Simulated scan of single mutants.
Amino acid sequence: MIVAIVNQHGNADRSIVARNLAVLRARSGRKVCLAMTGLWHGGYLWGEARSAARIRPWLDVRSLGTRAVGDRLAGLRRLFNDIVVDAGARDTEECRRVLGAARVIVVPARGGEVDLVGQYTLARRLNAARALNPEVRILFVAVCAVSDAEPDNEAALLAHVHRVGTARLAPVRLHEPGAYAYGEGRCVCDAETCDPELADEMHALYREVYAQPVARLRRPLLGVAQPGLAG
């Protein structure tokens, strides 16, 4: 399963969400790859620090590069149960490839940072991914300061969500996930005793992202016996 995290600003929220989702997924016993678009990314340093400190669960951190991204993803899918991709903030070909291949797209967004140009640029990318793969789930998640409860920010974020067909806003709200230092190679989900409330928010987002959609049951035809319904 491929989960892509993308946003329209170069803040730390995207990378922090990607790392926590990868850690929680690996903790469930799955073989997980944390991948990034582009040739260089701060996630490498984070992954190296995590390995050096022998922090568990261990994560395989890789780059998708800038060419043949589709082939690289196909190769990783044969090696891992799950791939969590930090797809960046720029509208690049590799980002579009990742979004088109994802099962779930997560968009961390701050209402106060939403601008019209950025909204339409990101909405185009997300709608293009949905056109390519109608089954993709697009999930926005609000990121805010601990004291931030301004209704104008919430309204701006909801308007952003509504520009993307079938997208929805996650019920969980993340409070400044990138503002805290947990040590080299660590994230909030490695430090739950320090910030249990923030860790709970990440756990809630994880459950939203990896929730299995319930298939709609077909109504049985009248007068026709259905397998498993007899008796």
Results as ranks from 00 to 15, higher is better:
Gln119Asn: 08
Gln212Cys: 12
Ala26Glu: 10
Val23Thr: 08
Glu154Ala: 11
Asn20Met: 09
Leu169Arg: 02
His162Gly: 03
Ile16Gly: 07
Ala156Lys: 08
Tyr180Arg: 09
Pro196Gly: 04
Ile16Thr: 14
Gly165Ala: 06
Ala191Ile: 08
Leu126Lys: 13
Ala101Asp: 00
Val23Tyr: 15
Tyr182Thr: 01
Arg78Lys: 04
Val114Tyr: 00
Ile138Met: 09
Leu126Trp: 05
Glu197Met: 08
Asn127Ile: 00
Phe140Asp: 15
Gly165Thr: 08
Glu154Trp: 12
Leu59Asn: 09
Val61Pro: 02
Leu116Pro: 00
Asp148Thr: 15
Cys33Tyr: 02
Arg56Gln: 11
Gly75Ser: 07
Ala128Pro: 01
Arg19Cys: 07
Val61Asn: 06
Val69Pro: 04
Thr92Gln: 07
Val6Cys: 02
Asn133Gln: 04
Ala215Cys: 02
Arg96Cys: 04
Ile138Lys: 01
Pro171Val: 01
Pro57Arg: 00
Pro151Ser: 15
Val104Ser: 03
Ile5Ala: 03
Glu184Ser: 13
Leu158Ala: 13
Ala109Lys: 08
Ala230Arg: 05
Glu208His: 14
Gly43His: 00
Ser147Gly: 08
Ala191Trp: 12
Ala170Asp: 08
Ala18Leu: 02
Cys194Glu: 14
Arg56Val: 06
Lys31Asp: 11
Gly228Ala: 06
Ala102Asn: 01
Ala12Gly: 07
Cys144Met: 08
Leu198Glu: 00
Ser147Gln: 03
Leu221Glu: 09
Pro220Cys: 12
Ala35Tyr: 07
Ala215Asp: 14
Thr121Ile: 11
Pro220Trp: 10
Gly42Asp: 11
Tyr206His: 14
Ala89Val: 01
Val214Asn: 07
